[in-house]
Write a protein that binds this DNA or RNA. Structure first.
Length: 309
DNA sequence: ATCCAGGACATAC
DNA sequence: GTATGTCATGGA
């Protein structure tokens, strides 16, 4: 099988509806948005040490989705196609049973969130490429905009990440390792556009490099404990910690509370009463449990889409 | 222009 | 616990 030919992700690996475009354009993970290249959405990553660019497009419909992919790699190896497929299934969370979410809070249950299910049908939560990239990207989102953090995180890839020459002659850059990022100077990193967040990123990279913080180990800890550990880091507060737990580790009970979610939940669930962000976060966790991350995603996009607030 | 962006932190009470 | 000023820059 030639990898640069279009193949399809096995249909049975997509559970429930999918709207690829709204999912990829929703700016959830803090990582750069995927590039749009002649009808495909493209991103890059490393698979068993080999860099590859994968492109994805949706065929079919939201309720009968098919995903077509092509792969261009640095150096093809046996199993690459399977590894890339697994990666896409993971980052797009294609195994999440979206209909189970819709059913659990359908209109008959009287939950106001059911109003968002129609307009946002097929919108999926995403996963970051890997925990370290997710951590740094999450830091980049604080008091920032999607345009700016996409720009600066791409620049971080291009300046400090390993360059790889693909079989089609193009060059891509991977996200830098903790070692590479930890050894940059604050001033240099600030110039990528991350500005004052540079010192936070470098310290985070240093702690990961020096094994003072083991991101994989956080996966095994419970939500509260892991959040505490993360908030030990400078520049990581409750919202960024939740972003990492959700996008970096896939803890879907995490519901990052930013200014929008804070306003929305206060209005829709607390009759406008002044409720702290921590209380809102706890409320979403307890109400939506393992669907809290999805609830956050749907509330956020519904409100911004309808310009409700 | 002037305002603000999917927060965190220091300082104040 | 809650409230306010500050942080740096680009984009609208």
């Amino acid at each position: 099988m030639r990898l640069d030919e279009e193949t399809e992700i096995p249909r049975e690996r997509i559970k429930g509806p999918l709207d690829l475009e709204s999912t990829l354009m929703s700016g959830q993970t803090g990582e750069p948005q995927w590039d749009l290249e002649s009808g495909y959405y493209a991103d890059v990553d490393e698979f068993s040490g080999k860099a590859a660019k994968y492109r994805v497009r949706q065929a079919g419909t939201t309720d009968e989705p098919h995903l077509k992919i092509t792969i261009t790699s640095e150096d093809g190896h046996p199993g690459l196609a399977e590894a890339v497929t697994d990666h896409i299934v993971r980052v797009l969370r294609l195994q999440d049973d979206l209909n189970a979410f819709y059913d659990a809070f359908d209109p008959s249950k009287g939950d106001i969130i059911s109003k968002t299910f129609g307009p946002l049908r097929g919108l999926r939560l995403m996963q970051g490429n890997n925990p370290f990239e997710s951590l740094i990207s999450s830091i980049s989102t604080q008091h920032n905009s999607i345009v700016l953090w996409t720009k600066s995180m791409k620049l971080v890839r291009n300046l400090y990440g390993r360059a790889a020459r693909l079989s089609d002659g193009s060059t891509i850059h991977l996200f830098p390792s903790p070692e590479a990022l930890a050894s940059t100077s604050v001033q240099e990193l600030e110039n990528t556009g991350v500005t004052y967040r540079a010192k936070y990123m470098i310290e985070a990279a240093r702690r990961v490099r020096d094994r003072e913080l083991d991101l994989e180990d956080l996966r095994n800890q419970d939500y509260e404990k892991a959040k505490e550990r993360l908030m030990d880091l400078p520049g990581i507060g409750p919202k960024v910690a939740d972003c990492f737990l959700l996008y970096g580790l896939g803890k879907t009970e995490a519901a990052p509370v930013d200014i929008w979610i804070h306003r929305i939940v206060r209005k829709l669930y607390f009759e406008g009463a002044s409720v702290s962000t921590e209380k809102v976060a706890r409320f979403l966790r307890e109400r939506y449990r393992s669907w809290a991350g999805y609830a956050q995603l749907y509330l956020f996009h519904y409100v911004r889409m309808t310009r409700l607030m």
